[in-house]
Amino acid sequence: MIQIARGIIILFFLSFFLSCNAPHDNLLDPVNTKYPFVSIEGTVQTFSVPYAGIAGVTVYWQSGNILVTTDSSGKYLINRIKPVNGKLIYSKEGYRADTVEIIWHRAKKISRNVNLNKIPKLDSISIYTVVINQYYPSQTANLFINAKISDSDNDISNVFIVNNGLNLNRALNFNVTSKIYQIELSTADLHIIDIEETIGLNFNIVVKDIFSRLFNVGSEKVTRVIKKGVIIRGPANDTTISPLPDLQWQRYTPGYPFSYMIEIYTNDFANSQLIESKAGISPDSISYQVQNPLPAGDYYWVIWVIDKFKNRVRSLPATFRVK
């Protein structure tokens, strides 16, 4: 009996040992060399350093019509797919999509890491018209564009203002102090005769990166052109007044919300200097008392009308003297 039991034990261990080294004939066993499926894995990261995983990126395996999404670390896995050559397409809102070609070459697993480029974002934009009334030439009008753009990858090369109807494609200047892209355009720059031709037109902001890729990041319309300026009552015509003049004008009723802004300049044709400026004056006002005494000299003053979209018009200048 003991010999029989001993033989059973030996037979059990022998069969166990042989089974562990037996060939994996099951085709669904991943260890089987004939396993018919393959897998793709990888990480999606930011384009700029320090690299960080991007969560929520859609990874599309075109050959198998399979969609997966990256996890919180930017990792993804596409498992149990047939080894058919094809393309992986990576996409997420706010990023430039990328495509990777996959060729298997009998591989069972392929790892592909990509870096997605953040699309520049238009944080703010203002497009407004400025009309200046003067004695000669009688009136000038310009279009001002200010755009604030953020780009975490810091790969902006140029920013353009574009309107195909006006055949306009001009690079904006970057103001290093305000961090704003801006430009001032005359009617000649806009290829028009009257600034009112811009009303209602869409002006697109297009960003070009260091790889010469273009991104249309937003647009804005011209809402209004204000041509009629305020009529000044006084002081004017080189009137001699006290150092604290009371500036007066006729009531202005354009039919839309606005505010006044007053500016006082030295009347020096070669080197005129701004002496005082006061913005945000109520539309109900028809006068303004200068707050700081003016030194003796020759001056002129103007009054602006500014609407809520920043469109504005300047009055004709009025001159005065202070003893």
Results as ranks from 00 to 15, higher is better:
residue 171 A to R: 14
residue 41 E to V: 13
residue 126 S to W: 15
residue 102 I to M: 03
residue 297 G to M: 00
residue 82 K to W: 11
residue 150 S to K: 12
residue 156 I to P: 03
residue 112 R to N: 08
residue 289 Q to T: 06
residue 7 G to V: 11
residue 322 V to M: 02
residue 300 Y to P: 01
residue 167 N to I: 10
residue 35 Y to F: 09
residue 136 Y to N: 15
residue 236 A to V: 11
residue 199 I to C: 05
residue 275 I to F: 00
residue 293 P to H: 02
residue 167 N to L: 14
residue 177 T to Q: 13
residue 287 S to L: 13
residue 43 T to N: 08
residue 18 L to N: 01
residue 100 V to F: 13
residue 107 A to P: 07
residue 168 L to Y: 09
residue 9 I to N: 13
residue 168 L to V: 00
residue 157 S to Q: 10
residue 49 V to W: 15
residue 226 I to F: 08
residue 249 W to G: 13
residue 104 W to D: 01
residue 3 Q to T: 14
residue 283 P to W: 10
residue 222 V to I: 03
residue 72 S to E: 10
residue 190 L to G: 03
residue 250 Q to F: 15
residue 7 G to D: 14
residue 259 S to N: 14
residue 131 V to L: 11
residue 176 V to K: 14
residue 56 G to C: 09
residue 314 R to Y: 14
residue 203 F to N: 01
residue 18 L to P: 01
residue 295 P to Y: 00
residue 152 S to G: 06
residue 135 Y to L: 15
residue 278 K to W: 00
residue 190 L to D: 03
residue 225 V to L: 04
residue 240 T to H: 04
residue 291 Q to T: 00
residue 131 V to K: 14
residue 17 F to D: 02
residue 62 Q to Y: 14
residue 260 Y to W: 10
residue 269 F to P: 10
residue 233 R to Q: 13
residue 151 D to Y: 14
residue 172 L to P: 09
residue 30 P to F: 05
residue 155 D to Y: 12
residue 96 R to W: 08
residue 84 V to K: 07
residue 315 S to P: 06
residue 6 R to T: 12
residue 172 L to A: 07
residue 208 K to I: 02
residue 292 N to E: 08
residue 25 D to C: 13
residue 1 M to T: 09
residue 311 N to S: 08
residue 127 I to K: 04
